[in-house]
Write a protein that binds this DNA or RNA. Structure first.
Lengths: 196, 196
DNA sequence: TAGCTTTCCATACAGTGTATGGCTGACAGA
DNA sequence: TCTGTCAGCCATACACTGTATGGAAAGCTA
């Protein structure tokens, strides 16, 4: 195992992905090139290709690295409304931690296939009274809504980071979900119109 | 006004934007290059730069060209629920007409600044009972939700074009908005839980 | 006709992703 | 200790990108 003359240890995909994420957070996705990444790792550009098939696969790896940050909390006994707010806030925090990468997260179905999140979300939706046969559609809609809202926020739709707008959006969702409870399982959750 | 030896008429920004949109719809945004565009127009690559400052401005022009397709209908007297559905369906049709460009539409605040749409949307939201002081937040949330849902759909979150999922999503929104009517203006719109 | 302006084009440069093939140094077996 | 073998690394090269620069040609006005 010949090791680079200029480095003490051999490269690894993990190291490459981590450094790529650092560069992306610093300078934006567009600014990331294999050459710059190699320079940051003090390595020849072609060395990267022994650990990563190509740039697209590299970005895939960075995306899954970021998505691994999502760790939805277990059921803590709070109301489904609170848990919905919590999940939304979690994704929002991630978007703001990696604002430059976030649009590229949204542009790939990867984001939707986070099973851990999906399971938790379904559990919460069931508590909200969403019937089983519509669960998938509602879950998808909710996920897409949240991701889309955050994308708009990241892209500067609102002036700066507008917490009130986010609260209003989540409230809209919670109110929409409440209809399922009123109709199906006979829950009596009254619409909460005030955000916050 | 020297005219290209190989063309009958001088170039124009309109012609360039239109051809760029054609190429994008055909081959995707990533495949668009100044050289290919020039070849499609039977012109030297550098000729483009006399009508368009650079590639970013070119894409800006293509985006506004596409956005000009949005022509929200006037108030036709139908219920606000129906009008919400109509607006959503309009944006959805646009997304499906230009699936390759759509993610780039979402990635720029341009999309949000379509005043014509904004005005119509606000009128409908007022009819739904959204109070004036929350109008901007609700409008933004709604716009972001819809754009995000369509982005997820375009990016292959659902298997194919899933009309039922879209209906479920719009229903979720309508139900959410209904809470404003119940609370604020005393409207009695009962939640409609069934999509379609 | 002369000059000006508009449009176009040829060349060139720096930067990109990556295919190809050769070098280096660590290990296994003799 | 000598000799493969091979993983890891690197130098070179190619086709492509956006675009800066400067010059040529065609129409207009004077």
């Amino acid at each position: 195992m010949a090791v680079s003359a200029r480095r003490g240890a051999p490269l690894s995909p993990e190291e490459i992905h981590a450094e790529a994420l650092r560069l992306i957070d610093e300078q934006g996705v567009e600014a990331l090139s294999m050459r710059k990444l190699a320079a940051a790792l003090n390595v020849n550009p072609m060395s990267l290709y022994h650990h990563v098939p190509n740039k697209e696969a590299l970005l895939d790896g960075v995306r899954t690295l970021v998505l691994s940050e999502i760790k939805p909390a277990d059921d803590d006994g709070s109301s489904w409304q609170e848990q919905i707010r919590g999940l939304g806030a979690g994704l929002r925090a991630l978007a703001h931690r990696h604002p430059s990468l976030y649009p590229y997260l949204c542009a790939h179905p990867q984001l939707m296939r986070q099973d851990g999140v999906s399971d938790v979300l379904c559990r919460v939706l069931a508590a909200a009274g969403v019937p089983e046969d519509r669960m998938a559609a509602v879950r998808n809609a909710l996920f897409a809504f949240t991701a889309g809202f955050l994308l708009a926020e990241i892209n500067g739709m609102f002036p700066g980071r507008d917490d009130a707008a986010f609260e209003e959006a989540v409230t809209l969702i919670v109110n929409g979900l409440s209809a399922y409870g009123r109709d199906g399982s006979g829950g009596t959750a009254h619409a909460e119109v005030s955000p916050g």
